[in-house]
């Protein structure tokens, strides 16, 4: 079946074999946007986190058919209009990534959290950022999240 939605500001259609198959594969293989990662396929690690209508969603466990008509953002579309998204900028400033594989998922989860909680406390972060990073970059991520909250969206693309 064909599913149509807006992704990173562009209207797109993608063919899926089964409407119940995960949106993740429609994005990664159907649209060749590889920034959204596969880690577990069972909503347990967060590597596949994207935004659907502004909410953080684990796309590996999100049926593709539910994306019909929705507004989707992936890591590739987070920075808009020539401006680096504050979360990505904070991640660069704090030199967060190690292997980097989990990072898009964390960045998307963080961006969604900051939309709802612009100035999160450490407890807010602990409660909302529950993805898995095997390299153990949490310590720098926490600093980057606080930094992004401060930046308030005022950075330019380098």
């Amino acid at each position: 079946m064909k599913i149509s939605f807006t992704i990173n500001g562009e209207a797109k259609s993608v063919e899926v074999s089964d409407g119940n198959s995960p949106l993740l594969w429609a994005i990664r293989d159907g649209l060749d946007l590889k920034g959204t990662k596969f880690g577990c396929g069972k909503a347990a690690c967060g590597a596949c986190t994207i935004h659907v209508d502004g909410n953080a969603v684990r796309s590996c466990s999100f049926p593709a058919k539910l994306a019909e008509g929705k507004e989707i953002t992936t890591i590739e579309g987070l920075s808009k209009d020539g401006k680096t998204h504050p979360v990505q900028q904070a991640w660069i400033d704090e030199v967060v990534p190690q292997c980097g594989y989990c990072q898009p998922g964390f960045i998307m989860a963080t961006a969604a959290m900051l939309d709802k909680i612009p100035n999160p406390t450490d407890e807010d972060i602990d409660k909302n950022i529950i993805n898995v990073c095997r390299c153990g970059t949490y310590y720098r991520m926490r600093k980057a999240i606080h930094r992004a909250a401060k930046m308030n969206g005022n950075t330019d693309v380098q």
Partner: peptide, 27 residues
């Protein structure tokens, strides 16, 4: 010195083994 692979990793570039594509590839 900041890691030289910072930007691709923060922007979600297709740099990993899982991201490899080849024409006409099957799964």
């Amino acid at each position: 010195i900041p890691r030289i692979d910072l930007t691709p990793k923060v922007m979600g570039d297709p740099i990993f083994g899982m991201d490899v594509e080849m024409p006409d590839m099957l799964h």
